[in-house]
Structures are given as structure tokens and as C-alpha cells.
Write a protein that binds this DNA or RNA. Structure first.
Length: 253
DNA sequence: AAAACTTGCAACCGCCTTTAT
DNA sequence: TATAAAGGCGGTTGCAAGTTT
């Protein structure tokens, strides 16, 4: 049913197939790329028996089929990184995506668009309602991976609508201010053992603070404490500034 | 109960850059 | 070295599902 919807005709003037990918197409593409590696996308479409353009094949692989993709909700921590890096670089989605392992530029772009682009209008009332609803259901099925930390939740619930809007406006102003500037900070690779700017871990820490993650050398205690107090999911990096901001009770979206 | 609106996501397009011939 | 093809990126669109009014 779903396969035939949308995008008008399901092939273009040259006869290339368009629109949603079928499971069969996915299988062909995955098998071919697993066998021959990424790249040479035009020959991929020919050789794998796919009637798709090379660009379409590349996009499907990169955004959906490639191993190691995370999927699922963007965590509050990831959101923090997105906000911070967007403030720094603007809409450099692919650059931002490099600091969020397992997330694609498309995903981050979509997230930003739906959550922040028009959020100037959003009110605290809406967010509060949402949290209240979630609390009502939480006991059964909410996991650490997809809910806000109690701390973040409280922060939102305790804010007055005005306070909330002002803080949001500050963040937006900050973002707009930096939007057109060239990148001035060169962040190190996401996972590294030699840098003192980026922190990274690869596992899940429980909320009670038991810690089994991989820390870089020279991590200072404030950052440790700040991040340890946050719910955590998987593979992701943090900047010192943001960790300290959290530690000092910085703004939490 | 239903219409209107929002959110999430996949995929397309056009433009620019990089690579291959 | 010039040019064509391929790759990469950011903006945008279309749709389904969920939510609010």
C-alpha cells in the first residue's frame, strides 16, 4: 500500500524509479554495497539491478541502510550538541553530523527544522502539557534512552511561561548572531584520547550514577559530574564548554 | 467526532565541488 | 588542461501519524 504513494509518477522522464524504496530494492542495494563497498554510485544502480539514479542509491545508503546508524529519539545531550554547534556554524548539517556518531545530516536537519526553526512561537504551556502526559504514561514504557532527565524535566516545569520564552529567545538570538560567521573553532575528531576539548563515551549509564563509560584522559571533575547527571544513550561527544554550562546550571531545552 | 494543525521522516531538487577521463 | 560525470550538501516537499481545538 505504502509503496505507491506520493511523488506523482513513480519514475522520471529518463525512466528512473522515484519515491519510497521497497524492501526488495533495499536488499539489492545493501547486498551490492556490502560486497563492493561504497562509491561509484552510478555503477551501483546499473550493476545491482536497480533502476535508480546513483544519487538516489547513495542517499538511501547513507541515510538509511548504512550500518551503525542510531535511529530513535535525539537525546537531550545530542540536542545540546546540535544547538551549540548550530550556533557556531549555522546550517552546516554535515559538519555537525560528524560530532553525532550514528546520526545523519538529514536527520539533524529535520530535527532542527521541526523543533527550533519555528519554535519562537512555541509556548511553555505546550511543553508542560507534553511532560504531564508523558508522566502519566511513564511508568509502563518510558526508558532512560527516550525521556528527559528528572532534572531537565523539573527545570521546564518550574519555569514560568515568560521565563521560558525569554530563555528560548536568548538562545535564538545567540544562534542568529553566530549564524553568518565562519567556523572559528576547530573541534577535534569525535572520539579521541589525546584531546582535552572533546569528551566521548560509548555505552549507557544508569541514572543512579554507576559509570562504565570510556573517558578521555585529563577530564576535569566538573565535566564528569555534569555529564554523569544526565541520562545517556550511546556514542556521542561533548565539548568542555557545554559540560561546564550544564554543571553551572546552564540553559536546558 | 471531526477538522485543523503539528511532528517526524524519507526523499527529491538544484547547485556547487571534486574526481575522472 | 579542459570538460564531463559523479559526489556532496542544503533547502524543500509530500505524506502519515499523532495531537489539539
Amino acid at each position: 500500500m505504502v509503496g505507491m504513494m506520493g511523488w506523482g509518477a513513480n519514475s522520471d522522464q529518463q525512466g528512473w524509479r522515484k519515491g519510497p524504496w521497497t524492501p526488495e530494492e533495499d536488499k539489492l542495494l545493501s547486498e551490492y554495497v556490502n560486497l563492493h563497498g561504497e562509491g561509484r554510485w552510478s555503477s551501483v544502480s546499473r550493476c545491482a539491478g536497480l533502476n535508480r539514479t546513483g544519487k538516489s542509491c547513495r542517499l538511501r545508503w547513507v541515510n538509511y541502510l548504512r550500518p551503525g546508524l542510531k535511529r530513535g529519539h535525539i537525546t537531550p545531550q545530542e540536542e545540546g550538541i546540535i544547538i551549540e554547534l548550530h550556533a557556531l556554524w549555522g546550517n552546516k548539517w554535515s559538519t555537525i553530523a560528524r560530532y553525532l556518531p550514528g546520526r545523519t545530516d538529514n536527520e539533524i536537519k529535520n530535527y532542527w527544522r521541526t523543533h527550533f526553526k519555528k519554535k519562537q512561537k512555541a509556548s511553555a504551556k505546550q511543553d508542560k502539557r507534553k511532560i504531564q502526559r508523558q508522566r502519566n504514561q511513564q511508568q509502563q514504557n518510558c526508558t532512560i534512552a527516550n525521556k528527559l532527565s528528572p532534572k531537565a524535566e523539573e527545570a521546564i516545569m518550574q519555569k514560568s511561561d515568560e521565563q521560558y520564552d525569554n530563555e528560548y529567545q536568548d538562545a535564538v538570538t545567540f544562534t542568529n548572531y553566530h549564524q553568518n560567521m565562519d567556523p572559528v573553532v576547530d573541534l577535534p575528531p569525535v572520539v579521541t584520547t589525546s584531546s582535552d576539548i572533546s569528551y566521548a563515551w560509548t555505552d549507557t549509564i544508569p541514572m543512579d550514577g554507576l559509570w562504565g563509560g570510556l573517558w578521555n584522559l585529563d577530564v576535569d571533575d566538573k565535566c564528569k559530574v555534569a555529564i554523569q547527571n544526565q541520562p545517556n544513550t550511546a556514542n556521542y561527544s561533548y565539548t568542555t564548554d557545554y559540560a561546564l554550562n550544564l554543571y553551572n546550571g546552564g540553559f536546558i531545552f
